[in-house]
């Protein structure tokens, strides 16, 4: 196993809460705040803080709109986020594969 493998793992993605949100966004076009909350079981505060990190990294696009009179925040995975998640999956697969050998 390459001893520097841990340096190749994307630390922004390698966090369970962020990973579960990204996995959810990976398979849909977009999802709003409540939907992510329901699917991941995270609190509103957690989602907000993790989403900020993902947005700062350019992995997620935040869209703020109004549904009727209520504000609605929805999230979309950016092409950069999609690519990074795929790279992360590949890296993890390799690392875990090496570990099993």
């Amino acid at each position: 196993m390459d001893s520097t493998w841990h340096n190749t793992i994307d630390k922004v993605i390698h966090e369970p809460a962020r990973l579960s949100m990204l996995a959810c966004l990976y398979v849909v076009e977009s999802a709003d705040f409540v939907f992510l909350q329901r699917q991941t079981g995270l609190t509103g505060g957690n989602i907000s803080s993790h989403m900020s990190k993902l947005e700062d990294a350019g992995y997620v696009k935040v869209v703020k709109t109004f549904v009727g009179k209520r504000p609605n925040t929805s999230f979309q995975l950016t092409p950069k986020g999609r690519g990074s998640l795929e790279t992360y999956c590949g890296t993890m697969k390799q690392v875990l594969g090496d570990l099993a050998d």
Partner: peptide
């Protein structure tokens, strides 16, 4: 449903 479950747009 929407206020409880949230809204999602699935892939094309």
């Amino acid at each position: 449903t929407a206020p409880r479950m949230g809204q999602v747009t699935f892939t094309r």
